[in-house]
Amino acid sequence: MNRINWPIWTGFVLSLVAVFSYPLVFVRWPITREFPWANLILFAIALVLLFFGLRRAFIPDKTIVSKVFSTLAAVFGVFLLAGLLFLIYVMGSWLPKSAGAPQVGQLAPAFTLTDSNDKPVTLAQLLSEPVNNKPAKGVLLIFYRGYW
């Protein structure tokens, strides 16, 4: 009887969950984004399942098809783990050095830009206009990539 090799299938599905849960879920919270421990735990479980699935596929009475598919599933699982680590630690650091960005203690370079009501706004205005009906104590400039 050729029973289904559930460890390999569960391990394969779990490794997909482990990789896609990062951009879809865990990227939202700094504690799971900066170090992807939640995904690494999922991957650890997935790799254990893939390992036992592979062992089961390579017992003598299994077919060659089962051996090939199990091997592909296991390789793909490891590939997904490598992909996630590549995304976070290699692609994540593909940022310019920005050595010329203004430093702490320096005066922020003045500017005039258009706001979302198509009105020109100066940095001086942003610094002087009240916040919450009280004199502004400061301004936080957030440079961001734009909407996704």
Binding site: L95, A101, P102, Q106, A136, L140, F143
Partner: peptide, 26 residues
């Protein structure tokens, strides 16, 4: 486009804190 960066300015426009991250996920 702009890379992610944050600057906290006091009311005189002086930068008092900044983060120019080296990793997009941080």
């Amino acid at each position: 486009i702009a890379r992610p960066a944050e600057f906290l300015l006091d009311s005189t426009g002086t930068i008092r804190w900044r983060m120019v991250t080296e990793n997009f996920f941080k």
